[in-house]
């Protein structure tokens, strides 16, 4: 179970927005330099239409982040299908998404329908029921720590064990929070 209470952690969250902006500035593959303006302002939570329940879940994630980590200025981004999420994640146009375990594993391996996008290095932020909240592997540790802190212990993720196996490896920032270690330094 969480080593640090959610409320303790959330007090540290207000700095996420600026940090997220810096991280998203690395989104060098976006075709419009201007488009980065939006994606550095907001933490996009990806989902896709082919998984109807994922849209509601993403909206719940955003609601929790709005309540507990408002500086993230989180927004839902609904792709038409999982392949579009792979494209956006692979090209650093998006950092975080909700996926099923099988989708996450296939995307990580670049297999099946995700082959055109190549392997996408993903890390687990939190399991959310029968889906996973994943991030790009280069999502900063501190941001992962803060997002996990905002969601762990809520109705979306009431009981989390870092020992539990998942389709993709844990993000070290999320693991740090769940194991009670302090917020990582600024990235």
């Amino acid at each position: 179970m969480c080593g640090r209470t959610r409320r303790q952690a959330l007090g540290l969250g207000l700095r996420l927005g600026v940090g997220a902006g810096a991280a998203l500035l690395l989104s060098g593959h976006t075709p419009y330099g201007q488009w980065v303006v939006y994606r550095k302002k907001h933490l996009l939570i990806g989902c896709h239409k082919a998984d109807p329940g994922a849209y509601d879940l993403a909206k719940q994630v955003v609601a929790q982040l709005d309540a507990h980590l408002p500086a993230a200025k989180s927004r839902v981004a609904r792709a038409p299908h999982a392949g579009r999420l792979a494209s956006l994640l692979a090209t650093a146009q998006m950092d975080v998404a909700t996926l099923s375990g099988s989708e996450a594993a296939a995307m990580q391996a670049g297999s099946g329908g995700f082959a055109p996008y190549g392997p996408v290095a993903l890390r687990l932020l939190l399991p959310l029921g029968d889906r996973l909240l994943i991030a790009r592997a280069d999502f900063p540790e501190r941001h992962a720590w803060l997002v996990t802190a905002a969601l762990a212990g809520t109705d979306l993720a009431p009981e989390i064990q870092t020992a539990q196996e998942a389709a993709v490896p844990w993000h070290p920032g999320s693991r740090a929070f769940l194991e009670g270690r302090p917020e990582p330094g600024s990235d």
């Binding site: 075709p31 488009w35 996009l44 239409k49 981004a77 999420l85 494209s87 956006l88 090209t91």
Partner: peptide
């Protein structure tokens, strides 16, 4: 795009501008 009559701003946020 994959936009349709029932699309909303959440769908727009997932547009991949590499395809323009």
């Amino acid at each position: 795009s994959d936009l349709t009559l029932d699309s909303n701003a959440d769908d727009l946020a997932a547009v991949d501008l590499n395809f323009v």
